[in-house]
């Protein structure tokens, strides 16, 4: 291919690119490089570094991180949330997008409503969710059962004749906590996925559907044999970005549980990988923090590669 810029004038191109390159070097390349460096300096700490301490090169940070019970708990919570929420939100988004695409009236207002979570601050949404699942005031009876509930979810459950559940407050179970998180994350993930899938659906040539109708294809078969394959590039995209986002889950948990990352009696119960990295940083263990960040990077890389591999056969570009 011919050079677009004359080779004599290439320095000009570099001059034009230099501001962007400088910014990238300072804010992207250097931090990445530094993270890798810190991860392999055993027991690295910013404060001790300033104090003139020397650190040995090795994989001690990684070994230590992987031995932490807290880290393994974070890994478990993060992975669980990912594995549960990504498929659910993708399938729901696909169904909603198909339904939205097939209705004529109210399509625009409904689209707006479905898109609202995307433009709302996730901490604010978290607080609203916390209120909805709350047992405000935590009124307990003699046998520790909840007498008065104020969250709308428990009110509905009781109205339907069920028993109120302690979702997120003192004494709640891990299962209850996770249920709230799954609902919250799925709901929060829907708008982006619906947007992408709806865009994909609207660009599908209508004649494929006309052709399928003439051939007497059932609705289910049209969905599975035509809509899904034609949407497969978009589906792969939302699944992959969903997994990447899922492994970086953090704010949603802060939104509902606050910085304790868990119910009052078991703080950090729902801590995630990013939460762990943040905690390590705040205790000045930059070495371990960097190691955890690199582990997270490795996990995301592997999961994405698996995703790409799986989608290779099923995605039709």
């Amino acid at each position: 291919m011919a050079d677009i810029v004359d080779s004599k004038n290439q320095w000009k191109a570099w001059v034009y690119l230099s501001p962007a390159i400088a910014l990238l070097l300072v804010f992207t390349v250097w931090p990445i490089f530094n993270t890798v460096r810190m991860a392999f300096l055993e027991g690295y700490s910013g404060l001790m570094n300033v104090g003139g301490a020397k650190f040995q090169f090795g994989i001690g940070n990684f070994r230590k991180v992987l031995q932490y019970q807290r880290f393994l708990s974070c890994l478990k919570t993060t992975s669980l949330l990912c594995i549960i929420t990504v498929p659910i939100s993708t399938i729901l988004a696909l169904l909603i997008a198909v339904c939205l695409n097939s209705i004529k009236i109210l399509q625009k207002p409904l689209q707006t409503i479905f898109f609202l979570p995307y433009v709302t601050n996730s901490i604010a949404i978290g607080m609203v969710f916390a209120a909805m699942f709350n047992i405000v005031g935590s009124f307990y009876g003699t046998q520790n059962e909840i007498i008065v509930t104020a969250g709308i979810v428990n009110n509905i459950i009781e109205f339907l004749g069920g028993k109120a559940v302690n979702w997120i407050n003192y004494g709640s179970t891990y299962l209850a906590n996770m249920t709230v998180m799954v609902i919250y994350i799925v709901w929060n993930a829907l708008p982006f996925k619906i947007l992408i899938l709806l865009g994909g659906l609207q660009s599908v040539n209508k004649q494929y559907y006309d052709a399928a109708r003439v051939d007497g294809t059932s609705r289910r078969r049209i969905f599975s044999r035509i809509t899904v394959p034609l949407l497969s590039p978009m589906i792969a995209y939302v699944v992959i970005t969903g997994f990447i986002g899922g492994f970086k889950e953090y704010t949603s948990i802060v939104g509902i549980f606050g910085e304790t990352m868990g119910p009052a009696d078991d703080a950090k119960r729902l801590n995630t990988m990013v939460g762990f990295i943040y905690d390590s940083l705040s205790t000045n263990s930059q070495g371990r923090s960097s190691a955890a960040a690199l582990i997270l990077f490795g996990i995301i890389l592997v999961v994405t590669l698996i995703n790409l591999r799986v989608s290779k056969k099923r995605v039709h570009y």
């Binding site: 040539n205 006309d210 052709a211 003439v214």
Partner: peptide, 16 residues
């Protein structure tokens, strides 16, 4: 259409 027993070839073929 499916009950009419017609075959239709579209202008841009609409092959899946």
């Amino acid at each position: 259409p499916e009950n009419r027993g017609v075959g239709l070839v579209f202008q841009n073929y609409a092959l899946y």
